[in-house]
Amino acid sequence: MKLRQKKTMTAYLFLIVPLIFFIFVRFFPTIYAFWLSFTDWNIISPKMNFVGFDNFRALFADSVFMKSLWNTFKYVLYGVPLVLVLSFAISLLLNNIRKGQAFYRLIYVMPYITPLVAVSWVWRWMYQRPPVGVINNLFSFVGIPTQRFLFSMDQALIAIVVTTVWVNLGYCIVIFLAGLQTIPKEYLEASKIDGANRWQVLTKITVPLLNPVILFLVVTQSILFLRIFTQVYNMTDQGSGGPLNSTKPLVLYIYQKAFLSFEMGSASSATVVLFGIILLITLLQFRLLKRRVQY
């Protein structure tokens, strides 16, 4: 009995500092962000007025906010399928080979650990137009006309997506490979004996068995693209999300509202919107996973 009490006390003692941390650095700020989103506070003014849903109404009436919301979805809609399809294809190829698999995998993972700021500046430099832009120089070498990339309203967002895909590819490949290696060899052998061709094995066996992995990657990559910021800040002129806001994502909008205009209230409202979207996607994942387990 005494030992048990002592252990309970020890447990609380061990947890006290971490609990204070999680309450004051995670929980309280979350509640505070929600509270701020209903006020008109900017950091300069001493008073903080409760304004109800005014901020949200103003946000959805703000064409720049709507634009950045739509851009954020575009990042997800272009980026997630691209990175998933590419990484799945590459991991299938990697799964075919044995010698050098580790080496190849290593190279693919390298961008993932490189500082994103460095990556952004290198790509920004590569995306320049001639005479200094290496991609355009290579293009003209094979006869493709010069592209404006980051300065084009149609291409800038896609150019940033490409850079991001280059970064995230390795992460997805590693996870796909790990997933592929959990598929029992017997399944594949058996289906081959049954006369299934490669395509049938892929669609009837591999993909269904990898479903949880795919779902996981869809969710984590979606969240990653929803939170895109560093690349856009470093790759666009003056960190503005230009040209003409065509690359500005939600987080850059929030950053500008909060830390350039210091409209903390309405910036917090925008973070609540972001939180809502991320929550929705996470809950959807749990829902889908649960259904799978029940089957």
Binding site: A11, R26, T30, Y32, A33, R227, S268, L279
Partner: peptide, 26 residues
């Protein structure tokens, strides 16, 4: 084993859902 263990674990894990972007202002 101690009272409140499950709640504490749930409390900590639930913070994973909060995006950093929401916390930077506070």
């Amino acid at each position: 084993q101690f009272p409140g263990k499950k709640i504490i674990f749930a409390l900590i894990i639930s913070t994973l859902m909060i995006p950093t972007e929401m916390l930077v202002i506070p």
